[in-house]
């Protein structure tokens, strides 16, 4: 060994001696602690999300019943879903319509938020009134609207007849044309207060000097709205949009109480149809295939929503 090589070896030995062991390193310990804290959540996530999801995919490829051993079915359930079950396409359409109603609700909530954000007398009362529907139990909302829509004794028909708009009651929940819009309206009524609060918070976080500057520069109210309010409300609007989409996928209880999915499948959503297929018809395997379709649809929408929000929704930013 040359003198230089000996020196280099000594430096390496010295460096190794100076470096702490893997488990003794601060970074490792920190990382270990993070994982330790995360572990309970991860276990629960694995048990209640990942395993059921994987099992659901397996189930969708089988002929399965609680009473018999499972048999491999290949893509039979998917074939049935895509080519033979016209109700499936109907409920997918209903789910998309229900989802498309979320932006309508958000637009209405934005209008209300703008109104109650003005310096008007009693605005606190107005805010409370609009918000009041949100904490009401969904089952109660369903029952209230069932009565409001009643063909013979409902308030809505009473008003319509009194105003001469119609000469006989409209069977809102018994009609194939009216049932879905009627349920959507009830759903929007319930959630609009929630959207309003989110948007109001967003509105109040916009610095007033931006509007003052715009006004000095001669911007009209419309220009201020589109150039200042809407861009700065983007995070709040995105949050409302995501909540709206999730609500439309999970609007089970309202449908269940108001119409049970009927008439026909006029108000069935994917989630209600999956439930009745599994638990009323006992076709768990077919319901599993539809759940996979539901999952794919949901992931697709989440992806689109994320792209629309700039591709960073939910990203954790590392602090400097």
């Amino acid at each position: 060994m040359t003198e230089r090589a000996a020196d280099m070896a000594a430096v390496r030995v010295g460096a190794a001696a100076a470096r702490p062991a893997f488990w003794a390193r601060r970074k490792t310990r920190e990382l270990g602690l993070i994982w330790l804290f995360l572990l309970p959540s991860l276990v629960i996530f694995l048990l209640y999300r990942i395993i059921p999801l994987v099992w659901n995919v397996v189930l969708s490829l089988e002929f399965w019943s609680p009473y018999r051993p499972a048999r491999f079915a290949g893509l039979y359930q998917y074939q049935n879903m895509l080519f033979y079950d016209d109700a499936f396409w109907k409920v997918v359409g209903n789910t998309l319509i229900f989802m498309a109603s979320a932006p309508v609700g958000i637009a209405m909530a934005l209008g209300v938020a703008l109104l109650v954000n003005q310096q008007i007398k009693g605005r606190g009362v107005y805010r409370t009134i609009v918000f009041m529907s949100y904490p009401v139990m969904t089952v109660a909302v369903g029952i209230i609207w069932q009565w409001l829509y009643n063909e013979k004794v409902g308030l809505i028909n009473y008003v319509l007849i009194s105003l001469g708009i119609t000469n006989k009651g409209i069977p809102f929940l018994e009609s194939f044309q009216w049932a879905l819009p009627a349920v959507i309206l009830a759903s929007l009524w319930q959630v609009i207060g929630f959207y309003m609060i989110i948007l109001l918070t967003g509105l109040q976080s916009i610095p007033p000097n931006l509007y003052e500057a715009a006004s000095i520069d001669g911007a009209s109210a419309r220009q201020s709205f589109w150039r200042i309010t809407v861009p700065l409300l983007k995070p709040s609007l995105f949050l409302c949009f995501v909540v709206g989409i999730i609500n439309s996928f999970n609007a089970f209880d309202l449908i269940f109480v108001m119409t049970g999915g009927g008439p026909g499948h006029a108000t069935d959503l994917l989630v209600t149809y999956i439930y009745s297929t599994a638990f009323k018809l006992g076709h768990f395997d077919y319901a599993a295939a539809m759940t996979v379709a539901n999952f794919v649809l949901f992931v697709g929408l989440a992806f689109v929503a994320n792209r629309l929000a700039g591709g960073e929704a939910g990203a954790v930013k590392r602090s400097a």
């Binding site: 109700a87 018994e174 009609s175 194939f176 009927g262 008439p263 026909g264 499948h265 009745s276 009323k280 018809l281 006992g282 076709h283």
Partner: peptide, 21 residues
């Protein structure tokens, strides 16, 4: 054996006719 499935296959169609759809 598939009583519930038969009901589900028949009734929505009948309902559509009865309600003028």
């Amino acid at each position: 054996a598939q009583d519930a499935a038969i009901k589900e296959a028949f009734y929505p169609e009948l309902q559509a006719a009865l309600l003028g759809q």
